[in-house]
């Protein structure tokens, strides 16, 4: 779960149906369901860019955009190594951090840093 306290929204990474669910904290009801890549796990929100990121174990970071509090769209399933279950955002730099345990199927242990492209 990630939160947008300013707009009273919660973002839920639902593993079983692989849907990113937007929950309205005033109405206490979901208002949007967006499809994700397989094995969604940790979800984070960057309010500065209006982006929601979900680390998907099958090998992607699902990237969504908050157009406004009620409207959301998927930007990309950004491909990463298999078995990446987690992500962190530095909200000052908008950089993402994802640890990898595999590289092309071989064991690895490393941190990968991404910058947000916003053009």
């Amino acid at each position: 779960m990630a939160l947008d306290p300013e707009h009273h929204r919660a973002f839920l990474s639902c593993e079983r149906n692989e849907l990113m669910t937007v929950f309205d904290l005033d109405k206490h009801a979901p208002i949007a369901f967006l499809k994700m890549h397989g094995g969604p796990d940790v979800i984070k929100f960057d309010p500065g860019l209006g982006r929601i990121y979900v680390a998907c174990y099958s090998g992607a970071i699902a990237v969504f955009h908050q157009d406004d509090a009620d409207h959301y769209r998927k930007l990309e399933d950004f491909r990463v190594q298999h078995a990446v279950p987690t992500v962190a955002i530095d909200l000052k730099t908008h950089r993402l951090y994802t640890p990898e345990q595999e590289e092309d199927g071989k064991p690895a242990a490393r941190m990968v840093v991404y910058a947000a492209v916003t053009n």
Binding site: K106, M111, V113, A115
Partner: peptide, 23 residues
């Protein structure tokens, strides 16, 4: 369009192939 661009990567201690969790 591309939303992310890799900046750098670096090795972490400990054995490879072992699962990470929250950050």
């Amino acid at each position: 369009g591309q939303t992310l661009k890799q900046v750098t990567k670096y090795d972490l201690p400990g054995p490879g192939g072992k699962r990470f969790d929250y950050l």
